[in-house]
Simulated scan of single mutants.
Amino acid sequence: MDEAHRVSGRIGKPWAVVHDNTRIPSLRRLYVTATPRLWQLGDEDEAGAPGELVASMDDDPDGPFGGRAFTLTLSEAIDRGICAPYEVVCVDATGTALQAAQLLGAEGRSAKVRGARFAALQTALVKASSEENFRRTLVFHHVVKEAEAFAAGLPDIAAHLHAADRSCNRPRSGWPVSLAGFPLGQWAADARRFYARGEMDADRVAQLEKLGMVWSHFDVAWEEGLAAARGWAAENCHLLAPLSATFQGAAVASG
């Protein structure tokens, strides 16, 4: 059971039933949590008041959770490559004009003020990326169009900041900060998604097709498989191919 700390504490919790072997019979239970919770009885509980504690996550072989089987610390998980090392970077937008505008009630939600806030966030992200050497960033938005606009505008923001302050570094390759360390395959996958939704400009479609863009891996795999199946069937006069069958190096199988 993951998030096992949720079934610790007072007996009134509905989830505490998992400890009751008469209601949920089990030979063994494995509890997993990143935040073990230890509980103690208070004076009211000791006096027999309602809400008696049902479970504390002590390392106790006779307790509801049993003895601790294994502990993996965050630092060890990072060393093993299971968890990503992380630091919390707090970015503070100090522009007094923007702060004042956001306090104007309904006017603070106008397109002009929202646009200024958008630009401030883009600027803050690019500067933080340069100063902290971010390899990639993940930004959350309530609206998909805002997320796309945020990403699309970052290269221009990065170029503007770099022109104004050379210490705001761009990658050695000359790519915009927004694409520093960004996997090319992910970028291509995003392009395919926009294309499939009909949200890509015709000139961008033409630019990618000029480079030999493959819009659908499934279509390519189908055409290649069909070509191999035709060749094998022509040689064998049927298509009841064994799983190991190949034609000119391409796999052919009837399943």
Rank of each mutant, 00 (worst) to 15 (best):
A100F: 04
L98F: 06
F118E: 11
R117F: 05
A111G: 08
L104R: 15
E46N: 06
C90S: 14
A120D: 08
A111C: 03
A69D: 00
L38E: 15
D59G: 09
D59Q: 03
E87G: 02
A111S: 13
T73C: 00
P50C: 07
A106H: 13
W39C: 06
E76P: 01
G95E: 10
F70G: 01
F70D: 05
G95Y: 10
L103K: 14
R109Q: 15
A116K: 04
G108Y: 12
E76I: 09
E87D: 15
Q122N: 07
E46T: 01
D92G: 03
A34H: 06
G67M: 09
T71H: 03
A84M: 06
V113P: 10
L41G: 04
Q40G: 07
A128R: 02
G108W: 08
R80A: 08
G95N: 15
A119E: 14
G115D: 10
V113K: 15
E44F: 05
R114F: 15
T96A: 13
L74C: 09
E87Y: 06
D58E: 12
Y86A: 14
T33E: 05
E76T: 12
W39R: 09
G67S: 13
V89Y: 01
D59A: 08
V91R: 09
L72R: 02
A97G: 10
L125S: 11
L125A: 10
L98R: 07
Q102H: 03
L125T: 09
